[in-house]
């Protein structure tokens, strides 16, 4: 079933498995999220669920948003996001319903979506891992330069400009980034915490979206299948 939750990235630590293997984990405080609106095919043309997360002082919100949240019986919330569901699934959600980390308890793998740390205006070596030029051997003032950006007519053999999408220096980071198929290491329902293996985008205390993995890697698909078979 389609699902998505919001939470806060708290930071990283490590967990040792019973076999003594060190697992780097990111701690995410997931939810509680409130369902603020259920969009249906009849009314909105598509089926989706809108959820809200993060407390906010009413004076920092806006009157329309306060009203919108109040309709679902919720205090003003900071973040509102939607996730699409199948039309028949929409009925299982209702406005005012609370979703927390328990909703993820059967998941082996999750995707985490966040906003990556902003790096400012960066050159091509940092931004796209270009190789740069020699440090010496006669190189002058071009150590980190991108090199030739091609002729003016290179896109399809004609035209008057550069090839579109040519990688150049520019703003890096502060972008929506999805990390896929992270292992769920532990779920702590009491504290509302989710521990996933590896790193997730963004700075600590940043908002992240967590959803069951939508596209599993091949090896992980096999693991999920094996686990399901074991369960019967």
């Amino acid at each position: 079933m389609a699902l998505m939750l919001m939470g806060k990235k708290l930071g990283m630590t490590r967990v040792y498995t019973d076999a003594g293997v060190n697992v780097p984990v990111t701690v995410i405080a997931v939810g509680p999220c409130v369902v603020t609106q259920v969009r249906t095919t009849e009314k909105d043309g598509y089926a989706a669920v809108q959820i809200a997360y993060g407390d906010m002082k009413p004076r920092n919100s806006t009157i329309p948003m306060i009203g919108h949240d109040a309709k679902a019986g919720s205090a003003p919330k900071r973040f509102h996001r939607e996730f699409r569901v199948r039309p028949e699934e929409a009925a299982s959600f209702s406005a005012g319903q609370e979703l927390d980390v328990n909703a993820l308890k059967d998941q082996m793998y999750v995707d985490v979506i966040g906003t990556s740390k902003g790096k400012g205006f960066q050159g091509v070596m940092k931004r796209y891992h270009f190789k740069g030029f020699f440090a010496s051997h006669g190189t002058e003032r071009k150590h980190r330069a991108p090199g030739s950006i091609g002729g003016l007519c290179s896109n399809r053999g004609f035209g008057g400009g550069l090839k579109k999408g040519k990688r150049m220096a520019g703003h890096m980071g502060d972008q929506r980034v999805t990390t896929r198929c992270l292992d769920v290491v532990r779920i702590d329902p009491e504290k509302g915490l989710l521990l996933v293996k590896g790193s997730v985008p963004g700075a600590n205390n940043g908002m992240v979206q967590v959803r069951p993995s939508t596209r599993l890697y091949k090896s992980k698909t096999r693991k999920v299948a094996a686990a399901a078979e074991k369960k019967g």
Partner: peptide, 14 residues
């Protein structure tokens, strides 16, 4: 605090 919370997760492994 966040730091204490994260440390509490691993306290039993120390």
């Amino acid at each position: 605090s966040t730091q204490q919370l994260i440390e509490s997760l691993t306290a039993d492994q120390l």
